[in-house]
Design a protein around this nucleic acid. Structure first.
Lengths: 349, 349
DNA sequence: CTGTTAGCGCCTTCAG
DNA sequence: CTGAAGGCGCTAACAG
């Protein structure tokens, strides 16, 4: 029915072992033999049986990339860069190619674990986890245990934009969310703002916490009193920014600036301000985080912190493939760059 | 070293076959036995060997989703909906779960074929291809051949937002790009526009062609003469819209409207217009396509055609899982809805 | 309901 | 450089 390696061998008049060797290219094979085999492969339209090959070799060519939200370009950009480093290589015929594959957890801890188990089951060659982690203790422990098991089984684990999971054998490229947030708020304070609203992400995420901490560091350093009612938690999406902004305005109409957990949230905030008849930045300044492509097209364009998502992703991909040395101590911090644009200005009198 | 099914069987004092049966849940097993086995699984921290299981069963639990650009929310939204229908089910312990996985072709025909081969090699249970196809004849034939082979091997193939590939056994949910584009241009013509620039996507894509054809149908039906110099080809991104708009303004400063291949392109167009000192829509109207989440936040908000990406993706996912009947004739057309917003208005005198 | 028996298709020592 | 042989871990008939 389906053509197997043995069929190819028969047609090329060699042993199955030889066919395997030319396909994997790990062993010396005479050029003429190789050519004969390759011809037979083409003629028979042979496709290697992945499961069989993985079973026998005890490894697979699958690489998993976990993202929290595949519809969010923040993850899309990273995933794209990672995949380009992994799946883009080779282009060869039967062997060599890796199947780089992205899995969408939707931010759900259960699905995260499920995907990790599924990848473990497939004996994935590597796994890259992107974006913030959930801080719930039992879940964090479960993930850490899973990661340890993966690395022990020879799967390379890389964290990209995520804090190191100590003792798991993973390599981490973490984003300096705290520092970026601090510089951003410093910028606003420098302009003269003193009443700043903060729209945070989901409460239990590392990214959320670190950005908020950076914001508060800046406030504390400047000796600015902070009203706890000026911080609202939500999600990393536009709608959350919209609703949170209306809520903040209700609580404190005198706010002169709004710092958002990310750019999408900031866009929603802008919409809410506009609908409330407030001008940006004359009445209220707005700032985002990430510098996604659409942020420069906002009107006015968005002051934000640029994270080198594509660079970090590419590096994570290379490390996952063993084509780049992991950083010393298996951890590197990636800084963000403050982008001052039209959405931030001096506060109104 | 690694714990196998046999280990579990030994510990639970049953045969390997029984363990397999409780894990797959396809066979009657006494409740007490099942429990014993499950306990052994937990105690041993056993994880099924995917390749071995796929080899023996001649099927795998892998489902591939191909996208042209994972960093583009157009694809992200569809992929997310598809994956939710496929990977979200079950949540059970060892068995049942499917590994829904997205592959980024980056719009490259070679990578598309590579990924299809890789999925074929893994004996994927289903494959969903999203978005426009490349019209290059040899490549289209190669893809069709590959799809036919996949369906023949029992892999379910679903096309989502992509024209049917005749004779391949695939199920297609196509978007009515032509009709949507026609209604959009009709709207602009109805406002009084007669000099409309068009910024198309890459020339060899079906989506590009269909949207452009719809635009031209509307022009022809209204008896509006069309200058070929008012159409510019580019890519489906912001930058392309920016540059193409500058080019169009150079060629014809008297344009009163710009129709863009999609929303990202439209945003770039808006930026270029603004920098050129033109107001939207007073001086120039702008229209996009897709109605991505950010489009409503543009200033002014974007007139566009909404495609039900999430609905279509969910349906494609269900069909891929065999949980929904394919449409009659294995093909269904999904309409877009015209969204009239602030970026389109009556042309200047 | 459960155990026994054969492979699934390939890789990888071992010889030659 | 190439062939022969064994087994990777699991599932799927068969019997019981």
């Amino acid at each position: 029915m389906t053509v197997t390696l043995a069929d190819v061998a028969a047609r090329a008049q060699v042993s199955p072992a030889t066919v395997s060797r030319v396909l994997n290219g790990n062993y010396p094979v005479a050029a003429s033999t190789r050519e004969r085999v390759l011809r037979a492969v083409d003629e028979l339209d042979y496709v290697l049986n992945g499961p069989a090959s993985s079973l026998a070799a005890a490894t697979s060519d699958l690489v998993g990339i976990l993202v929290n939200d595949i519809a969010d370009p923040f993850f899309g950009i990273m995933a794209s860069a990672i995949q380009a480093e992994i799946g883009g290589t080779g282009g060869g015929r039967a062997g060599g190619e890796r199947l780089a594959v992205v899995c969408n957890t939707g931010g759900s801890p259960e699905r995260e674990l499920t995907y990790l188990t599924l990848l473990q089951r497939q004996r994935a060659a590597a796994v890259v986890l992107t974006g913030g982690a959930v801080e719930d203790a039992p879940h964090a422990a479960a993930v850490a245990a899973k990661l340890r098991k993966l690395t022990e089984a020879g799967t390379r684990v890389v964290l990209c934009g995520r804090p190191q999971a100590a003792g798991t054998g993973a390599v981490a490229l973490t984003f300096d969310n705290r520092g970026g947030a601090r510089r951003l708020t410093e910028h606003l304070l420098g302009l003269g703002h003193r009443r700043l609203g903060y729209i945070a992400g989901p409460e239990e995420r590392t990214t959320t916490r670190h950005r908020l901490e950076g914001h508060r560091e800046a406030l504390a350093a400047a000796g600015v009193e902070e009203d706890p009612r000026w911080t609202v938690y939500g999600h990393y999406d536009r709608r959350s920014g919209y609703e949170a902004t209306l809520e903040l305005l209700r609580r404190e109409p005198g706010l002169t600036g709004i710092v958002a957990a990310n750019d999408s949230v900031a866009l929603g905030a802008c919409a809410a301000l506009r609908e409330s008849g407030l001008r940006i930045p004359e009445d209220v300044s707005v700032a985002g985080f990430d510098d996604l492509p659409f942020s420069i097209d906002a009107v006015p364009s968005l002051t934000t912190v640029r994270l080198p998502l594509a660079d970090a992703g590419a590096r994570a991909g290379r490390i996952a493939m063993g084509r780049e040395e992991p950083p010393p101590g298996d951890i590197a911090t990636v800084r963000g760059e403050l982008m001052v644009r039209g959405s931030s200005g001096t506060p109104r009198a």
